Amino acid sequence: MNTQRSFAAALAALTIASSWLACSDPPPLPYIPPPECRGTVECELPYNVDPRCGEVACIDGACVLELYETSRSQYRGDCEITRCHDGQRVAERDPDDVWDDGNPCTEDVCDPTGPVNKYVRPSPAPSGSGFCNGSGQEVTCLYDVDCEDPTRFCSLLGNCIPLECKNGMLDPDYGETYMDCGGHCDPCRITRPCNSKYDCLTGVCGPDGTCSVDRCLDRVQNGNETDVDCGFGCYPCADGYKCRANENCESGICFAGTCQPRTCSDGRRNGEEEDADCGGDCPPCR
C-alpha cells in the first residue's frame, strides 16, 4: 500500500514538473549584434574625408576607414605634391615634380612660380645628333663648319645645303623650284613654285604647283600644329599624339611631349568627371 502511494506521489510530481517545463520559456540565447555592413556599397565615407585621401570598405561585417598619406590624385609636372592630413588634401612644393615638354633643347626645371622650360643655349643636342639653336629647336647645324663639307653651308633654318643655294640663281640641277629654294635647298615660302610638299615650308604643294598655306585638314604637320592636323590652332590631339601644352590634347594632359590618356587620378577635370578626378565614371564628388 505504501509503495503504491509513493509511486502515485512520484507520478503526480513528475506530471506537475512536466507541465511547468512545457509552459516555461526557453532560456535566452546570447545577444549577437547584426553586422554593420554586408558589402562596401553600404559603407559611407565620413563627410570630413576627401575621397582622394581615403576610402572605406566592409571587412568582416564592419565599415573600416583607411586614410592615405599621399593623395591618389596628383597632377604630374606642376612642381607640387599633394599630401593628405587627417583626410584632407594639402599641397606642398616639390622641385622634383618637373613638367617634361618632350623637347631635348629645353631645360625642364621648377622655379618659385612653377614649372619652366628654359631654352638650352646653342650647343650640341643631348641626343647626340644635331644641335640646339638656342630657341628650343633641334637643327642640323649652327655654323658652316658643322656641315664638315666645303661644298655646303649652314642655312638660316639650320640645314646643311649646297653652296649653289645662295647664288641668287635658279639651279634646276639641284632641284630648285624657285631661286635658291626647293629641292636640295631650304623649302620655299607660299606662292613659290613647287614639285612636291618637300619644296614648301608649309609642306603643302597645291594643285596649281605653288606652295600653299597650311590648313588644319591638309594631312601635314605645319604651322603651329604639334602633330598632323592637331594642336595649336587646330583640333585637340588624341592620346599618343605629340603636344607642347595641355590644351593641345583631348584629355587635357600633355606630358613628355605626348598626349596622355585621362585617369581618375590625373589631377584634372576631363572625360565625364563632374570635378577634378571625381564624379561620372570616377569616385563620387563631395
Rank of each mutant, 00 (worst) to 15 (best):
G206S: 12
G257I: 06
P236I: 04
C132M: 05
P126Y: 03
Q4I: 15
T151E: 15
C200P: 06
D96I: 01
T15E: 10
P236G: 07
D214M: 03
V64H: 09
S19P: 00
E69I: 08
G252S: 07
S265V: 10
C264G: 08
G203E: 04
T263V: 08
H184M: 13
C84R: 01
P283S: 11
G267Q: 03
Q88T: 13
V120D: 00
P283K: 06
E274M: 09
G136V: 02
D214W: 02
P35Q: 03
A62Y: 02
K242R: 15
A13F: 11
S196T: 14
T106D: 00
S251R: 04
S73N: 04
G271W: 00
D60W: 04
F232H: 06
G39S: 15
C278T: 04
M169P: 00
G77Q: 06
V41D: 14
C154A: 11
R286H: 12
Y47L: 13
D229E: 07
A9L: 15
V109G: 00
D180A: 07
C211L: 02
G134C: 05
P162R: 05
R152F: 10
Q221V: 06
D281A: 12
P122G: 08
T177N: 03
G240S: 09
G257F: 03
Y68V: 06
T210M: 05
A256L: 07
C259P: 10
D146R: 02
D50N: 15
R72P: 00
L45F: 05
T202N: 03
L217M: 08
D111Y: 06
P35A: 04
Y198Q: 13
D266Y: 03
E44D: 10
L156N: 10
L11P: 00
C264L: 07
A125W: 01
L142S: 08
R93E: 09
D144E: 12
D25R: 11
L45E: 09
P33H: 08
E176V: 02
C43Y: 03
G158E: 04
A125Q: 03
Q221C: 05
P126E: 04
L14F: 11
D96S: 15
I32D: 08
G231K: 03
A22Y: 07
V109K: 13
S73T: 12
R215W: 02
G87E: 03
C205M: 08
H184W: 09
A125D: 15
P187R: 08
Q260T: 05
D199S: 06
Y119M: 09
Q137P: 00
E44Y: 04
Y198F: 14
E107Q: 12
G136W: 01
P236D: 06
G61N: 02
G87W: 01
G61L: 02
L163Q: 14
C230F: 02
D149V: 06
E80R: 15
C23P: 00
L170S: 08
E107R: 13
V109Q: 13
